[in-house]
């Protein structure tokens, strides 16, 4: 459930951020930019979860 929600959150944020980014002009650039944002969200989320998991609060 948690990973599903995180993926959905990352996907929505990535689509909007890639679409409004003025540096990405073509559809291909937007797609690549969106995939990068999605990857960063997921990667940082997973790393943080591994770091925070042993902390008891």
């Amino acid at each position: 459930m948690h990973v599903l929600m995180m993926s959905l959150y990352a996907a929505i944020a990535a689509i909007v951020l890639a679409t409004i980014d003025p540096k990405a002009e073509t559809m291909r650039e937007r797609l690549i930019h969106g995939l990068k944002i999605f990857g960063w969200f997921m990667g940082i989320g997973l790393v943080l979860s591994w770091i925070l998991f042993p902390i008891p609060w």
């Binding site: 459930m1 929600m5 959150y9 929505i12 944020a13 909007v16 951020l17 679409t19 409004i20």
Partner: peptide
């Protein structure tokens, strides 16, 4: 699931501010 729900509602509002700016 209410924390998930809150987070999605915050996401919607904050992204819409960026969309307004766009």
């Amino acid at each position: 699931t209410n924390e998930y729900g809150n987070t999605f509602m915050f996401l919607a509002g904050l992204l819409n501010y960026l969309i307004i700016y766009d």
